[in-house]
C-alpha cells in the first residue's frame, strides 16, 4: 500500500513546511537573500546619487528610455507566458506547457538581446568608464556626463549587469526545465519553482527600471 502511495506522490513532493513544498521554501529563501543582494546595489545607487545630487547626470538624457520601456514590456509578457506555463502544468497539458515555457525563454532571450544592443549603443556614445585608446575624457565621454559624476556609469552597469545575468541564468534554468518536460521528467512543483525565480527577475527589473532609468 505504501509503495502505491509513494509512486503517486514522490517523497520529494511530500515534505511541506508552512504549507509549501521544501523546494518552494528553498527558492523563496534564496529569493529573499538574492533580493537583499539587489537591494545592496540599488541602495548604493540611491545613496551615491543623493550624495552627488548636483553633479549626477540626468539618466533620461543618457539612457534610451523607449528601448528599455519595450524591454520592460517584453519581460512582463514573459511573466504572463510563465503563469500560462504553470497553468498548463496544473492541467497536465504537456503540449501547452512546452509551448509556454518556450515563449518564456524566448522573452528572456529577446530581453537579453535588447540589453546587449542597448549596452553597445551606450558604449558607442561614450557611456563607459575608460577609453581603450587612452584619449582624454573630453573626447569620448557622453556629453550629458561631461562635468558630472562618472559614478553614474559604474552603478548603472553594476545594477543592470547583475540583473541581466539573472535573466541569463533564468533562460538556462528554463532550458533545463523544458528539456525535463520533453523527457517526461517534470512535476507541477518544479514548474512553480522556476516560475517563482522568473517572476522575481521581472519584479526586480520593475524596481531597477523605475529607479535607474526614469528619474
Amino acid at each position: 500500500m505504501s509503495s502505491v502511495a509513494l509512486a503517486a506522490h514522490p517523497p520529494s513532493q511530500e515534505k511541506e513546511i508552512l504549507g509549501v513544498s521544501s523546494g518552494k521554501m528553498a527558492m523563496w529563501l534564496f529569493l529573499g537573500s538574492d533580493g537583499m543582494s539587489f537591494m545592496g546595489l540599488i541602495a548604493a545607487y540611491v545613496a551615491l546619487r543623493i550624495g552627488n545630487w548636483g553633479i549626477w547626470p540626468d539618466p533620461t538624457k543618457v539612457l534610451a528610455i523607449d528601448l528599455t520601456a519595450i524591454n520592460t514590456f517584453i519581460l512582463i509578457c514573459s511573466s504572463v507566458t510563465m503563469v500560462k506555463a504553470f497553468a498548463a502544468s496544473q492541467e497536465g497539458n504537456v503540449g501547452k506547457l512546452k509551448q509556454w515555457l518556450f515563449f518564456t525563454m524566448l522573452g528572456g532571450a529577446i530581453f537579453l538581446g535588447v540589453q546587449v544592443y542597448e549596452y553597445s549603443q551606450l558604449i558607442h556614445h561614450g557611456v563607459k568608464l575608460w577609453d581603450s585608446a587612452g584619449r582624454p575624457a573630453a573626447e569620448w565621454l557622453h556629453p550629458a556626463i561631461q562635468g558630472h559624476s562618472t559614478l553614474f556609469t559604474a552603478t548603472f552597469y553594476a545594477c543592470t549587469c547583475f540583473h541581466g545575468f539573472h535573466v541569463l541564468s533564468g533562460v538556462v534554468y528554463l532550458a533545463f526545465i523544458l528539456i525535463g518536460v520533453m523527457r517526461g521528467r517534470w512535476t507541477v512543483n518544479r514548474i512553480e519553482i522556476v516560475g517563482l525565480y522568473w517572476h522575481f527577475v521581472d519584479l526586480v527589473w520593475i524596481v531597477i527600471f523605475t529607479i535607474i532609468y526614469l528619474f
Binding site: L18, V20, L31, G195
Partner: peptide
C-alpha cells in the same frame, strides 16, 4: 507581481511574514 504571479497572496500568513522580512 509577488502577490498574484508568485501566488504569495494564497500562502500562509507566517510564510508571507518570513518572505517579507528581508
Amino acid at each position: 507581481v509577488a502577490a498574484y504571479f508568485m501566488h504569495l497572496k494564497l500562502e500562509r500568513k507566517t510564510f508571507i511574514a518570513i518572505v517579507c522580512f528581508p
